[in-house]
Amino acid sequence: MSRVSRRFLLVSALLVLIVGGNALAQSAGVAPPLNAWLMRVHQAARQSVYTGTFVVSAGGNMASARIWHVCDGSQQLERVESLSGTPRAIFRRNDQVITFFPASRVAIAEVRESLGLFPNLLKSNDSSIGDFYQLKSIGYDRIAGFDADVFQLVANDQLRYGYRVWSEKKTGLIMQLQTLDLDGRVLEQAAFSELQLDVPVSVGKLSRMMAHTEGYRILRPDLQKTDAQTQGWTLRSAVDGFKPMGCYQRPAAVAAGPGGNGQKTMQWIFSDGLATVSIFAEAYDSRRHVREGATDMGGATHTLTRRIGDWWATVVGEVPPITLNAFAQALERKK
């Protein structure tokens, strides 16, 4: 081989290395800023029109549902038909949700204020999600026939779980979401097993179906907005990254019976931007409130109970038990 040929080969090899190296770097990718990325996936979810089959597996259980989603200006409409478990159809118009149970002819109508919360929070730069999670790009994949970017949200401490997210390449729509425990094992997975984007979904038809409550008894959860201070509760110390998002009063437990003192149950909600924790406080009842401690409800959800004098606290959330314990230990009765 001539010297010229060898030089040519050397240059070619170097070029291949450089180009290959770049390609590799691209496959790992550089993660965009966290808030910008969250806004993108959020906007994708709002603006995309799609139908699909959504599958959730958690704690050895699996459930699936058929989804229709359409966006009409500022209005978002969604229909979720369960394919497993109790037959039910859930319709959502923005934050209005109604769940139909055809077997019992009962429909539950409710408002989920949390659904409208995040775009503004992310826009306002008031979000501290970036202080507690890091976004990492970990490559590409194919999900339900679509090319997807894969990202990982890595928790900065042990008070929260991490997430792995598959986001459709063109739109940013989340195709698959895994919740990972502190050792990186998958606790829960939610994914589209089949998805069709930009299909004709009729806003009018979904609206009519949602409004068709004839023959159903409509139940509206008896919820009153309140605040923890009014209810006599405070947290001695905040749990890192978790901010109070709202506080509600619910009717006393049905199971409380005549022995219950008629006190309502308080639900105080906290979020770190990705994970949510609810603190429930109700009057202590020795007949029902027997076991203090943590319970693994399967998947990412845990609960923890603790007696505080005449009160019984139950903390529920998609967080490690250690976090629930931090809430339970910090909870204090002020009056």
């Binding site: 959020h42 989340i174 619910r250 639900q267 949510t276 924790v277 429930f280």
Partner: peptide
């Protein structure tokens, strides 16, 4: 309480969808 948490709890930027 789990059901109540699911109902009001979804305060997450990954909430939708």
């Amino acid at each position: 309480l789990m059901a109540a948490h699911r109902q009001l709890g979804g305060h997450s930027a990954l909430q939708v969808p």
